[in-house]
């Protein structure tokens, strides 16, 4: 197991390096100069040149990339072009909100999808089964931002049940209840796309398992319906579902960009949009690196979890 882990980490390293190289190249080869957005019209050509040197933009991009990597190895993510503050500082305040949003969407997805998927499978071709099919297709087809806007329209503006945006009431008393209140709509919106897919996946995994011999044996030896479905079938059906977690992670992180923008949620997704419009390249680089890290870590975690839930799988 340990050897497998080390092996996986060694494979992840070149992938991460490739990710950073690719994004650095794309950003650097782009037309347009980040300095253009920072200068004010009163600056002389000399001042602009000084600024370019200060930001390290006078050197060719492979040199800058090597320097960036060197700093990264020392734990330095660089400095924001815009504020001059360390990038890590700018990102740190955004990690918490994004994590709370994605994790709650993630939990919501599986808390709803697993029971509904099981019910749909045990009552195949019933109305609830058709409803999940429709929900899965619809969830997959509705644009996240449109769903978000529609939710704000119905639940915030018309019914006045939830706030229209933000992660806490400005100048309010705060507290976890207030934050939870703000979290509900964005978390529901973010989970919708994955929820339908997961439901269908749980359903087909259950259908597959319940056709196997050991389930027939369980029925034959007179076990209760409950024991057959939940103890024998569900446990085995959840094994492939675990792999889905790793696949859904990039979707969830990408979806967070849109959800955060619609709801004014102060997370990494919104920071991405801000950094992009400000051409704050060090921040974009760091965000790319972090999201790639999160995706890779999620995939690794999925594989390990896979071995945990299925004793037949041994990594060696």
């Amino acid at each position: 197991m340990l050897r497998y882990l080390v092996q996986r980490l060694l494979v992840a390293l070149p992938v991460l390096l490739g990710v950073t190289l690719l994004s650095y190249a794309i950003i650097s080869l782009a037309p347009g100069d980040p300095v253009d957005l920072l200068i004010d019209p009163n600056m002389s050509a000399h001042d602009i040149e000084q600024m370019r040197i200060r930001l390290g933009l006078d050197k060719p991009w492979p040199v800058r990339y090597a320097k960036w990597l060197g700093e990264l190895a020392r734990g330095n993510l660089g400095y924001s072009y815009l504020t001059g503050r360390p990038v890590a500082e700018r990102i740190a305040e955004r990690v918490g909100p994004t994590l709370s949003l994605t994790l709650s969407a993630f939990l919501l997805t599986y808390l709803v999808a697993i029971p509904v998927g099981v019910i749909a499978a045990t009552r195949q071709y019933s109305w609830i089964d058709y409803l999940t099919s429709f929900f899965a297709l619809a969830g997959n087809s509705i644009p996240t931002f449109f769903l978000g806007l529609a939710m704000i329209y119905i639940f915030s503006l018309k019914l006045d049940l939830f706030p229209t945006g933000g992660s806490a009431t400005l100048g309010g008393p705060g507290g976890w209840l207030d934050r939870l209140h703000h979290l509900v709509l964005p978390a529901v919106v973010l989970s919708t796309t994955g929820m339908g897919r997961t439901m269908r996946f749980v359903r087909s995994a259950m259908l597959e398992v319940t056709r196997q011999d050991f389930i027939r044996t369980a029925w034959a030896k007179g076990l209760s319906r409950r024991a057959v479905i939940y103890k024998h079938a569900l446990r085995n059906a959840l094994i492939p579902v675990v792999t889905l977690i790793g696949l859904e992670l990039p979707t969830l992180i990408g979806g967070a960009v849109i959800t955060e923008s619609v709801f004014g949620w102060p997370g990494m997704g919104r920071l991405t949009i801000e950094a992009i419009s400000q051409r704050d390249y060090p921040v974009i680089m760091a965000l790319n690196l972090l999201t790639a890290l999160m995706v890779l870590a999620g995939q690794l975690l999925t594989d390990l979890l896979y071995a945990l839930v299925d004793p037949r799988i041994r990594y060696s």
Partner: peptide, 14 residues
């Protein structure tokens, strides 16, 4: 793998 390690939307945005 490298391209897939990005959340596609992020990469497309950038």
């Amino acid at each position: 793998d490298v391209v897939l390690s990005f959340p596609t939307l992020m990469l497309i945005l950038v």
